[in-house]
Amino acid sequence: MTQSQMTEKNRPDMSVEIAGVRFQNPVMTASGTFGSGIEYSEFVDLNRLGAVVTKGVSNIPWEGNATPRVSETWGGMLNAIGLQNPGIDIFVERDLKFLEPYDTKVIVNVCGKSEQDYLDVVERLSDEKRVDMLEINVSCPNVKEGAIAFGVHADSLFRITEKIKKVAKQPVIMKLTPNVTSIPELARAAEAGGADALSLINTITGMKIDVERRCFVLANRTGGLSGPAIHPVAVRMVYEAAHSVKIPVIGMGGIATAEDALEMILAGASGVAVGAMNFSDPMTTIRVIEGIEAYMERHQVSKITDLIGVL
């Protein structure tokens, strides 16, 4: 039976619930790889996505790092954007307004250099009805101060999660870095701090050297590795996180196909996000959604929730 011949009734139920928020399907965009959807809305029907997760936003505009900021690597890429963003005021006026009419969930990724920076943004967004969830980026490897410092030590992660939870009105996702020794320890710290969900992985710190010119390829020297090359690492970490906490986990890292997304779901992810592969093909999210549906039909799975964490 082809997709169009199927009736609504026997279509597999793709909806998932994460921290009380209902998503029409588990497929989201990974922060920083989809802007706020404005540009890709010319390629992709945003109404079909589980959620649009927006680019990290801070209390004031950030200029980001010097260029070159990106470099391709085998099966992936390095980036050191440095969280350039227009600041929360423009974001609310322009980006949130743009997302208003779409039938998809909106998760706003928040970044900061100090604890107060994060709290400012979280507080500013607390009355924004269009924001369904917050994702706190305590895991960006590309900015010198703040950001990742909060995400690599269990005690600081616990503290910042607790503080954010006190002011946040939307459910809070803490986004974890893979650049740590123990994922379970960090996952449990965020849960203990009151996080409503976890997302992982952010990029893996890497470096590329131009041997002809004998120099670093990225101006920042190091950058975050993402794309298919990191997928097995991400699956392992999603599995570890999902098995060490009770709160839901959103998995990301190198998802290019429905199979990649299903690996994460079977490993325990309630949601999945597509990042760098949007650059390769802006339709990747849609292909992943359709592929998961086809898989469920083929395996006669009626609800996607029956697949989450079966391993």
Partner: peptide, 9 residues
Amino acid sequence: ACGVGVCLG
């Protein structure tokens, strides 16, 4: 990276 304006690369 993206060529369309989302990555800020």
